[in-house]
Design a binder for these strands. Sequence first.
RNA 1: GCGAAAGUAGCUCAGUGGUAGAGCUCCACCUUGCCAAGGUGGAUGUCGCGGGUUCAAGUCCCGUCUUUCGCUCCA
Length: 451
Amino acid sequence: MAKNKKKQTELDKIVSLCRRRGFIFQSSEIYGGLNGAYDYGPLGVQLKNNIRDLWWKEMTQMHDDIVGLDASILMASKVWEASGHIKNFSDPMVDCKECKSRFRADQIDLEAPCPVCGSKDSFTEPRNFNLMFQTHIGANSGSASEIYLRPETAQGIYVNFRNVVDSSRVQVPFGIAQIGKSFRNEITTKNFIFRSCEFEQMEMQFFCKPGDDEKWFPYWREQRMAFYEKMGIRMDHLRWHQHGPKELAFYAKDAYDIEYNFVEPMQWQELEGVHSRTDYDLTQHSKFCGKQQDYLDPVTHEKYIPYVVETSAGLTRNVLMALCDAYDEEVLTTEKGEDVRTVLHFHPNLAPVKVAVLPLVKKDGIAEMAKELELSLREEFSTFYDQGGAIGRRYRRMDEIGTPYCVTVDYDTKEDNTVTLRFRDSMEQVRIPMSELVATIKESTKNYKRK
RNA sequence: GCGAAAGUAGCUCAGUGGUAGAGCUCCACCUUGCCAAGGUGGAUGUCGCGGGUUCAAGUCCCGUCUUUCGCUCCA
């Protein structure tokens, strides 16, 4: 009978909103659901695509020293041997038979008593947990055909380093950007889409001369943080976390994470990593494939294996961050009493629906006029037309999915071709000629500042 | 994967072995001249899934899947 009466956390509310309004659903829900996998609904996929497009534009279009790539998810198993994933992603684990606690075999003394319950000789034999998804390529399932779904996108870039250098007329220093899915057999999935088995990464590997990484590493840290400011994220919710010696991966020279202060109960969690990876990856691939993955400087004729500065952001995590950052419940005092307005303060560039067109009433040709206006705006913006229910109710529905602009057509529109433009954050409205709508919305988007 | 708790309409929940419920949402029509909750009508469920006990199971038992919290891990 003891019901789960724990109060709903901020994250619970966001999960609920995502489901209710069609942002994010659990995978395979009609079959009871699949742990750690999520489906993006009509609004969710648009939000995700908007973030993805902003990142891609920022990294490739705005930096002429970065080129794009889309590598295959399936790669030769040798890639993962070279990268160290096969060795390092298989953590041998032991369980205590008494208290059922689980430990990494390499992190505890197997001869000592269990650190949790103190039982002696209670550990199971170490067992491997490979965090990489494994499958077989080809019809035969022999060990020769064993293959993995990539656990990170970075290796797809490293193994194409020579291809890009040989075909693109790029010169070091330059970067390769890639967006794509990665897969990890996480033991525990947690916090909604924050950690899932299938996730999307937005990565850029910047190749530079050894030593120059000292310059590029701070440069990219600054660039990446500036990106979030452009996205309209509240900057007091972002911070840097530098990896201490113990956190640092064995190959990394230095590593910073951008952390975001997610809503309760998550708080500060990693959003993106900016890591200095030295020549580790290219050196490893040189060894394993037998071909030097090096670079010949056409000017100085120096030959070297470049150092790498990596920016690696989770697209999936960015979606959750955008939702958390935007989510707000405003208490409004109206004539009818107190009213709570749920609103997503997305930057207009992120909002899945940018402009809603609403007829004030359905009759007297108002609806037809509004529909026509909506059609004319489609070329410029993602639009939504809604004629159902009271006008205030329709505004609130748009607030809840983060639509920044609502355009209302009324009787005056028939007379003088003006419409009301209503702003989501301030709830203010201005009366403008229809002909100025596109320019006004674009201008407002450009100057958008999160309250 | 281990331990604990939970799963009933799109959402929040009531229903303690005897015909499946409420409020909100949603849809249609009316009303509505700019910020939710006005009127009338309507739709929605293999009570997570599978098995068992019983004349009878949403309710009791077992398994399973999912969710939440801890352990472990992490872009």
